[in-house]
Each structure stands twice: as C-alpha cells, then as structure tokens.
Nucleic acid binder design. Sequence first.
DNA 1: ACTCCTTTGTTCACTCGTGAAGTTACTGTA
DNA 2: TACAGTAACTTCACGAGTGAACAAAGGAGT
Lengths: 402, 402
Amino acid sequence: MALSSTRTNASRAAVLAFLGTHGAASRAEIARSLEVSPALVTKLARELLADQLIIELTHSPSRGGRPAQLIGLASHDIGAIGVKVAPDHLTMVEVGIDGEVTHVETRDFEASSPHALATLVTAVSEVVKLSTRRTQLGIGVGIPGSVQEQSEHSVNSTQLGWTNVPLGSALQSATNLPVLIDNNVSALALAESLYGTGRGHDHFLVVTIGSGVGAGIVSHGSIIRGHSGNAGEIGHIPVTTDGPVCNCGATGCLEAAIKEESLVRQARSAGVIGPHDGIGALEVRGAAGDPRAQEVFANAGRLFGRAVAGVVNTLDPEIVIVLGEGAASWPLWAAGFEPAFRPALIPQKRGIQVVVEGWQDDRWAQGAACLILSTPFDDAGVSGKQGHLIRERLTTHAGAPS
Amino acid sequence: MALSSTRTNASRAAVLAFLGTHGAASRAEIARSLEVSPALVTKLARELLADQLIIELTHSPSRGGRPAQLIGLASHDIGAIGVKVAPDHLTMVEVGIDGEVTHVETRDFEASSPHALATLVTAVSEVVKLSTRRTQLGIGVGIPGSVQEQSEHSVNSTQLGWTNVPLGSALQSATNLPVLIDNNVSALALAESLYGTGRGHDHFLVVTIGSGVGAGIVSHGSIIRGHSGNAGEIGHIPVTTDGPVCNCGATGCLEAAIKEESLVRQARSAGVIGPHDGIGALEVRGAAGDPRAQEVFANAGRLFGRAVAGVVNTLDPEIVIVLGEGAASWPLWAAGFEPAFRPALIPQKRGIQVVVEGWQDDRWAQGAACLILSTPFDDAGVSGKQGHLIRERLTTHAGAPS
DNA sequence: ACTCCTTTGTTCACTCGTGAAGTTACTGTA
DNA sequence: TACAGTAACTTCACGAGTGAACAAAGGAGT
C-alpha cells in the first residue's frame, strides 16, 4: 500500500467525491458529469470495487435503454472539518461527505488578541479529537480576507487585523490533517455549487449581507479569485457621493451604507430604536409595521439592488443567491431591492432569478468544509500539495471496514 | 496525409501558435509557457522539424547553463482575417500570425438593411480572394452583441438590430474557411492578452469608451463570457439617479451619461459647441483650453472612474487597459477619472496600473482576427469544431514551400 | 413474438503526456 | 586548467485517457 500511494490517480478521487456529493449514480451519469469517457469510468469503477471503496446498488428503471446500474460509496463515514473565523467568534462544524452538518460548535474568539492563533489551533484540534467519524479528509477555513498563495499558509485580513499569519502551517502541524484556507464568501459559493442552489449552474453569484457585504463569483464553473485573491469585494462599490466614510477610507461605499452597524446607526439617530438597541430591535420594528424602520431597510435594499445590478450586468450570471445574517430580514430589504434592481439590468437579464436562502449560522463553516470536499474536482490542481494529500486520504482511507 | 489528419494533435498547433505570437523561442521556454513537460516539447519539436513546419535558429547566449537552441516558424506567411461589424461600417483586416496588420479595408455598411448579411459576406469574400498570403487560418468576427453557442452560428445584437442572424454559417459556406464570432470587446481583450499590454497578466480588464462603453474581462488567463455571452456590459452599470434615459430603458446608465453622443448633446445644450458640431469639435475645444469643454470630459471621467472602480473592486484585476475611440482624448477624461477612481478602490488596489493605449481604428478588427490566432491555446476546446479546423489548417498547410 | 431503437456498460488498441534519470554545453571560480 | 554549478535538452518506461466497435438489457410499435 505504501508503494502504490505514489500514484495519486486524480479521477479515482473525483469519482468518490462525486458519489459523495451527488449520491449514488450510474457509470454513464458519472462519465457525463465529470466529462470523461465511459470507458474510463468502467475501468475506475472496477478498481474501486476491487478495493471495496464503492459498492454496486440496485438497477434503476430503464428509460428506453439498458437500465443503469447504480454505484455508491461503500462507507459514508467520511467527512471534513469546516471553520469560520470571525473577529469575535469561531464556528466549527463537522460535515459528512454528503454535505450534511453533523456537529456544530461555536466559541468566543478575539481575533486581535496576541494568542488568537494558539486559541484557534487548540479549538480546532479539540473538535478533530472529539470527532467520531472514521475518516477526516481535512480542515477547511473560511476567513474574511484573502490568502496569499492559494492553499498555502499566510493569511491577510483587515477585518481580523491579521497580516501574514501562518494559520495553515500551524493548523496542519497541530492536527496532522490537510488544511485549505480561503475567503469565506468564496467558500460559501463553493458550497452552493456543490450542495446548494448553484448546483448545475456554471455562472452564478453569491451575495452576502450582514455585518459586511461580499460576493462569491462562480464563472464557467469555477470560483473567480482575482489577481490577489480580493475578487468579490463588492462592499466597496461606490454607490453614493455623500454617505458615511467607510473604514477603507473612501466615501460612498456600499458596505458603509448598508451593513448592519450602519442601519442601526441610522435608525438610532432617527429615533426609530433606542440608543442601545441593535439590529434585532430594528428588524422587529420593521416586521411589526413601523414605516420608519421599513424605510431604513428599503433604502438599504435600493442601494444594494443598484449595486448588484451593476455586478450582474458586468458578469452575466444565471442566478443570484442572497445569503448572510441579513438575509433573515430579506422581506424588508426586498421592498427597496426589487424596484431598484430589475430596471437597472440590461433587458436580457431582467428575468434573472434571485434566490434568498434561509439563513443558518453554521452555513459559513459548512462552506469552509467544502473547500476540502471539492478538491477532488479541481482539475487544475489549484489546491496544490494539500489537494494531493486530500485525494490520497480519500482513495486510501475511505474503504469499508474490513 | 488524409489518414493522419484524424489526429489533431492539439499541442503541435499550440507550439506553432506560440512561436507565431511570441516569436522564436527555446524548447525550454515553450514548455514553461505552455505548461507542459520539456520532454513533450522535445518530441513535438522533432516532429515539426521533420515536417518542415519549424526551423532551428541560432543559439541564444547562455545565462549560466547550456545555451538555448531557438526554434522558429519555417514560414511566417500565415495569417487570419479579422472583421469588425459596426452599425454603419465594416472594417476588415488581414493579420500575420505575429499579429501585425498587413492590410486594412473599411466600407460603409448598413446593418439594418435587409441585404446586410449578403453585403457582409460579399465584402469579406473579396478580402479573402485578394489576399496574397499563402495560408489563411480563418475568419474572426467581432460584433457588438452576443453569440449563441460560442463558435457556432447565430448572432444577437441590439446595436445592430440583429436577432439570430446565421452569420457564421453564411461566411463559412461562402469562403470555405473556419469562422469564429464573438463579442467585439472580448475579442479586443484576447488581442491584448496575445500581443498587447495584457501579455503575461492572468487577470486584467479592458475597458472601451467611445460610441458605447464596454469591458472585456480576462480572469485566470481566460475570457469571462458569462451565462449568455453578455458579460462585460459595464455600460449599464447604474451611476446616477437622474440622468438621461438609456436605450436599454433604464435611467442613470453609465453609457447613457458618457458615450460620445451624450457628451456632444451636453456640450451643444451648454453652448460649448455649435448645434451641428460633433465630438471632434468638442475635443478641439477641450484641448485648446476651453474650461466648459474640459468640464464635460472631466464629468464623464468622474462617472467612468467610479464605475470602473466598482468593477476593479469586484474582479481584482492586475491592470486596467483603456481603449476605444474616446481614448484619444484621454488627457481630458483623466482630469475627472483619476480623482474619482483611485480613492474609490479598496486600499490594496489603489496602486493599480491604468494603461491607456493609443488608438488605431483597425484595432477592433485585429482583435477579431485574434479569435482565430488564439484557438490553438484553447485547451478546453470552447471553440469546438471550428477550432479543430483551424488547428488542422495550421498543422497541415503551414509548412515551408517545398 | 418480432424488429427497431435507445441507452448502458465493456473491451481493446492506441496516443498523449509525464517523471525520473541521464546527457550536453555553457559560465564562473579556485 | 580543472572543477563545480546551472540550465537546456534527450531518452525511456509507464500511466492515464480516448475512440471505435461491440455486447447487454430494456422499451415501443407492429
């Protein structure tokens, strides 16, 4: 076994990952989805069967031809760890290879503390240790910021106040698992394309609203990261000529105008909520029918709508997915969003579908875990050495108990 | 030969195209640029030498190791035709495989005429017939609009008033050459990445100003086209809440505010130029120092700067290239552009390079020709059957005269 | 029951491309 | 002048993946 581990056999891993994310499938279906020849899938399936990594299931009813022989994973006891790093808390999840979250854990965290890195490593290590799953493929981390050298170590994030923090190598040496780190919204987009609404769409946009504003861009089936990993920073699209000064230094940024903190400030100074009330109180007011509260959201919706329209015109996605803490109060946003958004699109795009997803807090962390689960599909090998390790774990340790 | 033509040998074509676009190079350099192994280049070079498609040139001086043996194309008498289709005129060029324009021809054209298609086909056929070049790889066409099914036939363009015009098949059957059609700005971006400033950059933005406003997006080395081929329509980013009604039906579109026609209208109603003067007169006024004319351009520059800043924040390109008829008067635009653009960027991007290219009118058509010249590099085979034909022509007909 | 059609899955010969190891031909240094 | 260092190129054995042809297993119409 030690000798044969040199050959990584990328497509073996891809087949396993496909069966995990998609569920049982026929050889023909796998070949079509992974865009390889049926001949290859036959060969791979034979090998994987011999290694007891997959099993043959029932035949599915024929649709005018030979009925398909479904194959599925021999063991679903495979998964990954996902970590969301926020300025004030950590969320860690364990997910199965089918994307389902099986364990959630949230802890307070102070990103600006000098012990932040050590605290994070300890917390993640504990989650790894506590896991009952037989095989963990790796640890995915989503951060509000960018990563130098995709899949490599150092992390930069203005929101966290981190510059060149060697998060990757620290986690890796502590847990002995492969580690991938990426921007949190990009990770979310990845999750949508594997398990969510983005499935089957080659071009879509994930936009998030909440404590910040961001976008994950999927084009031609893969994530757009940009030259320095900063793609998707739609929070700093200029939308007004006045408005508050953003912490990026500019005036009129989308984010400065519509992030939660800003909505709260507007509402407080207008006397809609008390000087110590937060976004929750504002939402309650709006839902209860207070027109001044509703106007705060509607105004944010209008600005957001115009900005997103610009992005849609520029990138031509097939659908737009709205996510984030703020999505919970979308009905309030929508009053301003829809009338601002649609008319500002080019005519061909005015019918574009906008999907608002119910928000669960663990979604970010689940997205981070998808960094791991999606590597086997990464033809270009962007994930480099870590990706290699993940594929190796998948094709080696994922067999049925013998 | 007929038998061996079944194997297309994609990388043979890629090597030839690389030598054409890049100039003579060593095997090692080719391997690095095309991201293949040196072993493969050795093998391919041997074959191509045997077929007399390439020749060995001088050794280049060593830089501390074995000196590189340069190889170059046996014949540079290879080229392509590029066609720019505008509402009122056609520009056709012949370019060499090195990207140089060797022949230009412009004709009046009425896109809305019922005979438009026939006229276009005749004009292009004549250029093909007149060509003295021994091998034409194909015909590239750039249109202001989108193409259904990349590399296939039918064309949609609101600017031309065309819906599902079978331009591709018409040109192909008339000339018996491979034909590729694409959006004109995307084609321009392709030209920049092959022969221009974009060379060596994996992420850049080409923005054009003039009778319209558009963008070509290159990300991770390839053109972003979007779900329905409409990516890059930055002309309809909303930038003002008032402003003239755009012909897309919306109010406040970038294009409606800053296209030439709009600048002229503003200048006329302000009395800066006479009621029958055009953009040329306005530029002369501005260059001569008329502050009112300068303000028209500066205002356009401001709007443009803010919009482009939003796009840069969203896509994180490495450089921005400004092109188009309007680029000739860039100094006038710049007065408004720079102070609006830089501060609106996220801090990491404030140093981004903006390159303004001197404008030649045949540039669009040259870009279109690059659709043909770039196909050998198209790994994914987006260009489909036509791409196949082009590669075949390149590896078959491109030999030295025997 | 028979034929035709459709779709799935398999076999086989073959090409493309690679990694590893070695060879060639220079520059720079003791 | 010998030696190490460096980079370009070559050879070779091997694996991954494919196209083409075929076999298998059903449905639908007659």
